[in-house]
Design a protein around this nucleic acid. Structure first.
Lengths: 207, 207
DNA sequence: GATTATATGTGACACCGTGTCACATGTCAA
DNA sequence: TTGACATGTGACACGGTGTCACATATAATC
């Protein structure tokens, strides 16, 4: 998290730094990005940077979290629209996520995020839904899922469902960027996989 | 891949370097590991290192690939033992993977690998099964799966099944290390999730 | 065995990025 | 005006990387 010093900064100065940071994180993946470039672009001295953030990661995950919160809002609105049907909402959200590639609003920020997806980034993107689902904490998003669509006994099992679809969704998103899939290819694969887990991977006994 | 120079080295000199590398990669995650430490421990000059490997990653993925090949052999033998039943084989393999934590043979090498799992590491660990499944290349492992256990039309769909169970398996392995789960917790979660995707996530219509 | 060519070993060095610290400047209250 | 505290600043020490000119070994040819 940014230090208080940063949050007290006039908004335009915050934005300048954020823009420069996004620019750098869109140029190269996190581990290649340099604070030197960010402050040069933003025109602030090195010492100031460390008044605002702990380090490069601190700034990066602050930005990623902002993006994640936008996505989360989107997911919530889709879930509402789909009346709690998790699978339909997932498709819609997946389509939305891969469509973001074509807007250049976030430049290659998301692209590099997915190309170098790891546990921490995934958790940030998932907005801690994983954690909340485990601890049965109230989560606006989870509350909206209508479990009557799901083949589970109780709400407890929902956390496993969330982890399953989460893992598959992230895996597919990574594939999109790694293999530069077209929207059609990406959606085809994702639908194939979600369809499989919906109906079950195990062949039913022939009675 | 190591350069020819390294492969031509007398075996004991290769091993010294490999041991030092494993030591360093067990001390800290890849991005914090330093060539300086490895060569100091192995007692070889800096210039020599670059005769043998392109860089730190080159060495790291060479080691990870060795571990992956061992795991792959293990998986093959389990698949044979389980007569091609993918799900039973997965359980067994999962148990085996988490049991590795308790041997200190690989020290914390695997631990840091999973704590910082990303696309490239996952792909290396999966031994390119993903790729092979996509391109319908012959893969010893894939050939051993008896698809008559699976709810799929043709062999083509097997690639989606592999990606699904792969994504879930890796997700669970990462959780093991991130949350320091006990063997029991880890197995319980994994079984719950595999069981769900076997029978299907979607509630069957009540006729 | 002498000579040449080719491969491998070596470590000093230039380069670059990080995080810190002593000092400068601003803010605000007494 | 003064002092106390917060914030701004950039030079610097540190540590890591990859390279390059040179040294040494190995092999091949006469």
């Amino acid at each position: 998290m940014p230090k208080q010093t940063f949050l007290s900064l006039p908004e335009d100065k915050q934005n300048t730094l954020i823009q420069s940071a996004k620019k750098e994180f869109s140029r190269v993946p996190l581990h290649e990005a340099s604070i030197a470039n960010i402050i040069k672009d933003a025109g602030i001295p090195r010492g100031s940077f460390y008044q605002y953030f702990e380090d490069k990661e601190d700034l990066y995950y602050y930005l990623l979290n902002q993006v994640a919160q936008e996505n989360n809002k989107k997911l919530n609105s889709i879930l509402q629209e789909k009346k709690g049907n998790l699978f339909e909402a997932l498709f819609e959200q997946f389509r939305y996520m891969i469509s973001l590639r074509h807007h250049e609003e976030h430049n290659d920020f998301l692209r590099y995020a997915f190309l170098n997806m790891n546990h921490r980034k995934e958790n940030t993107m998932a907005n801690n839904i994983y954690k909340e689902s485990l601890k049965n904490e109230r989560s606006q998003t989870l509350e909206m899922v209508d479990i009557s669509f799901l083949n589970i006994e109780d709400k407890q099992e929902l956390s496993h469902v969330i982890r399953i679809v989460g893992a598959i969704t992230f895996h597919n998103l990574v594939q999109v960027f790694v293999h530069d899939l077209t929207d059609e290819e990406a959606i085809y694969n994702y639908e194939a996989q979600i369809s499989l887990i919906k109906k079950g991977l195990q062949r039913k006994e022939v009675d």
